[in-house]
Amino acid sequence: MSDVRFTKDHEWVRLEGDTATIGISEYAQEQLGDVVFIELPTVGADVEAGGDAAVVESVKAASEVYSPVSGRIIEVNDDLEATPGLVNESAEDEGWFWRMELSDPDELEELMTAKDYKAFLEGLD
């Protein structure tokens, strides 16, 4: 079973083998409302944990998406270009943003498990 971790900024990361897939959480899409555009990172770019990697635009506003982990972008979800609403329909599956090779897999241990994240959300008002 793949391990999904979450950040306090509401990104998720799923590790499968050496590859991590990143997106925004169901809670995040709910807060954003209708997503109308996503600026994805460039394939081949190196990103650092906590660094700017993408921008998600709802009707109301633009929000930064930070990379939960460090590494190199190896693939982006091209479907989001024509169908940004996938993020609203399937935030934690088909609405993924990018895939990356991790430079330091231990970083994952610092992120919240699904159970921790649920508790974290309950603590938010």
Partner: peptide, 12 residues
């Protein structure tokens, strides 16, 4: 109210 459950796109 900034939006209702339908969302801004549908309300528009």
């Amino acid at each position: 109210p900034v939006q209702y459950p339908a969302g801004i796109l549908k309300e528009h």
